[in-house]
Amino acid sequence: MADARTLLRVTDLGKTYATAGRTVEAIRSISFDVAVGELVCIVGPSGCGKTTLLKCLSGLLAPSAGSVSLDGQPVTDPPEKMAVVFQEYGRSLYPWLTVEDNVALPLKARKVPRAERDELVRAALEEVGLAHATTTYPWQLSGGMQQRVAIARAIAYRPEVLVMDEPFAAVDAQTRADLEDLVRRVWRDLGVTVLFVTHDIDESVYLGERVLVLSSSPTVVQEDLRVDLPDDRDQISTRALPRFTELRTHVHEQIQRAKRDEHSEAVEPHAPAAHT
């Protein structure tokens, strides 16, 4: 990926929830750029606002401060060039539609002609290894296969950015390994830019070309780490590399530090955060 054109730009993004009587600052200030064709993992301690960040990125939630832009265009609504894979695969697939209709619906909304739509759906389901399951219903499939359907739906949409919110948090370890390799393959085959949110440190290092480590809430980017592992990754040999261990240890320490900072901050009197 020689092209270093910035595709996604997040500038001083902040999100404060106003609930009855008090405000909760979920994200203080996050800034980062993602270049075309990158595979970036976002990792952070639990409760650090990963999902909030992702909803702001995908135009599902309006940020309280700062901005998100995709290809130079400010994101205010879900952008056409972005596809999202949610963590709750069981709830994000339409149970009344067959697998192929689930994949086809976003294309229908985009008014892709029938023949082209069928071809995109077929190719996407083949890519995720579900060519045989087109007419079954999602609830007839295992969790891992359901998440493959959600990935196929995202692929068929031909997005420029594929955003995934802890997509494998709820599947078993073996399925998870297969799905991780699937994401790597999709990224390389389609040349799509991938933003992968996870709480799993190993997963972030194994998958990413770059790892953004978030701090505890109120969240900032704690570290922007380049993963210099070989391009061709393998569940056994890559995870056995000394460099892999170094990187995961490094990220792990960063996250431990993030948690410590949170605790030390908790004893200090809270002052309202002022944005610059």
């Binding site: 995908s58 599902l60 879900p78 999202v84 709750e88 619906l105 739906r153």
Partner: peptide, 22 residues
């Protein structure tokens, strides 16, 4: 289900199509 609503929103499934299929 709000997850389903968000899925539909993120894939820009609106209006009559959302009514009919979601």
């Amino acid at each position: 289900d709000p997850v389903l609503t968000e899925t539909s929103r993120s894939y820009r499934v609106h209006g009559a199509l959302a009514l009919r299929y979601v």
